[in-house]
Design a protein around this nucleic acid. Structure first.
Length: 490
RNA sequence: CGGGGUAUAGCGUAGUCCGGUUAUCGCGCCACAUUUGGGAUGUGGAGGUCGUAAGUUCGAAUCUUACUACCCCGACCA
């Protein structure tokens, strides 16, 4: 069991911070607010990237790359967009360093001040729409379905690894369409792509929904989202997809000639998920013994640990291990044979358990005398003794079972922490217990704002499948036609 | 940006109030030996501008001042 490791019940946020470091996912860097993603953590992100990238390509998108720097004036063009991002921008003012007058160190060269400051992108709508203007002349140029994998910078006051850092990695899709219907359909489609990814690969159940006006992306007409619940009952926005209407087309003057020979503004969407998904993954499945990874995203799916005393024993184990590795690999399973003699078996058990490797196979000289091996599954920490010829079949079976079990466990937790609340008195009590509160709301930003001020809870989303149900707003008592999700969030 | 706190080896720390030999302990690290089925044990060893700068003093980790960084609580946010 994990030594000196705080439990979730003791201190959830400390548990998270320590887990990220001890599982070798990331660490704080010397740069304020910025983290170093370590190889093991990055390997998980790469698996997410590859899977998502394929899903984007399968839905007709292409990757491209736009500049890191954005002229300040671009941000001024879309009023709501400026409002949303101005407060957290890193600004480049000079293009050269010079020796400081006192001879110690460097200062920005006063003679190298930029004519126009550059903003390190917090998001790329502006530079992209400035570019799209040049690409789009006719309906024949549409749609444009681009995605870019990039880093972005948002100057946050308080940061937490993966959940909120000043610089983070993400993908941002930016599409341009001839009609409103097509753009809306695109935004909704990408929300579903994200939801499929979250549920099938991350084994993380999500609610597909629409953001309230207060929570909407700066510059969007409608923001669709996938919303997840962490083990402590707090909500986490895992992905967003925006229908941007013609806001950016108008701001950047992007028009096209339609089939009817009419000059019209282009319709837009943008959508993104970030390394924040790493935080979501961690907080959805991990336990007091460390990280727990869903098999589809685990950099190592099966680890084989040999236990031996003599060279003969080692060579017998090697033969069995190599055979298993070959067969597992041929089935696309990532396997690591850890016969490193610098660490002992007991240490390895704890190490791989803490790093969330789904399946461990122990090849011990003792069991092998009876042709047996031990297999261990990370999600339940159960061990089983099987015949050595069953290793491959068992590993396949367990990986599938773990993937399914993790999803089910997360869904059960979410279900148990989701409930209807109908009075303001109950709301104030229930919100303290965490989880999702399904409540009626009068639909006004003012009411949402007041509820936020009084309870720190916000509307996470209006679920897209929310059934019509007549009721009264939890706060004002005004009529409402469906329940929305209230929760505290990350 | 407001309020509070911390800074001693890679990490975690004692010592600071009340200045006085060679700065404490644990983990980790290195070597050797014995070990290996849930984070081994013993012996030996390496590792420090005590956050930075200035000041007080015969003498500063310890007292004074300024600065810097980080953490917690607010405001802000994916």
């Amino acid at each position: 069991m994990a030594k000196d490791f705080v439990t979730r019940a003791e201190n959830y946020s400390e548990w998270y911070n320590e887990l990220v470091v001890r599982a070798d996912l990331a660490e704080n860097s010397s740069v304020r607010g910025c983290m170093v993603i370590k190889p093991y953590g990055y390997a998980i992100w790469e698996k997410m990237q590859h899977t998502l990238d394929k899903m984007f390509k399968d839905t007709g998108h292409q990757n491209a790359y736009f500049p890191l720097f954005i002229p300040k004036s671009f941000f001024e063009k879309e009023a709501e967009h400026v409002e949303g991002f101005a407060k957290e921008c890193a600004v480049v003012t000079h293009h050269r360093l010079a020796k400081s007058p006192d001879g110690k160190g460097l200062i920005p060269d006063p003679n190298a001040k930029l004519e126009e400051e550059l903003i390190v992108r917090p998001t790329s709508e502006t530079i992209i729409w400035d570019t799209y203007r040049k690409w789009i002349k006719s309906y024949r140029d549409l749609p444009i379905l681009c995605n870019q994998w990039a880093n972005v910078v948002r100057w946050e006051m308080r940061t937490r690894m993966f959940l909120r850092t000043a610089e983070f990695l993400w993908q941002e899709g930016h599409t341009a369409h001839a009609t409103r219907q097509e753009a809306e359909a695109e935004a909704i489609k990408m929300m579903h792509v994200y939801a499929d990814f979250a549920e099938k690969y991350m084994a993380m159940p999500v609610v597909r929904g629409i953001k309230s006006a207060n929570e909407r992306f700066a510059g969007a007409v409608e923001t669709y989202c996938i919303e997840a619940m962490m083990q402590d009952g707090k909500a986490l926005q895992a992905g967003t997809s925006h229908f941007l209407g013609q806001n950016f087309a108008k701001a950047f003057d992007v028009k096209f000639l339609s089939k009817e020979n009419q000059l019209e503004y282009v319709w837009a969407t943008s959508w993104g998920v970030s390394t924040r998904l790493m935080g979501a993954l961690i907080m959805t499945h991990s336990d007091d013994n460390g990280l727990v990874l869903p098999p589809y995203l685990a950099p190592i799916q099966v680890v084989i640990v040999p236990i031996f005393k003599t060279d003969e024993e080692k060579s017998q184990i090697d033969a069995i291990a190599n055979d298993a590795i070959e067969k597992l690999s041929s089935k696309g399973i990532t396997v690591k044979y850890d016969d490193d003699e610098k660490t002992k078996p007991g240490w390895k058990f704890n190490e791989y358990e803490f790093k969330g490797v789904p399946v461990r196979v122990t090849l011990g000289a003792r069991d092998l005398k009876e042709d047996k091996v031990e297999v261990f599954r990370r999600d339940t920490c159960e061990k089983e003794i099987i015949h050595k010829d069953e290793i491959v079949a068992k590993a396949e079976e367990l990986l599938k079972a773990i993937q399914d079990n993790l999803y089910k466990k997360a869904l059960d937790l979410r279900t148990s922490k989701t409930r209807n609340v109908d009075t303001w008195e109950d709301f104030k009590v229930e919100i303290e217990k965490g989880g999702f509160l399904m409540c009626h709301w009068d639909g006004t930003p003012e009411t949402e704002e007041k509820i936020k001020e009084e309870t720190k809870a916000t509307i996470r989303c209006i679920p897209i499948d929310a059934p019509t149900e007549e009721g009264k707003c939890i706060y004002t008592g005004k009529p409402s036609h469906r329940r929305v999700i209230f929760a505290r969030n990350y």
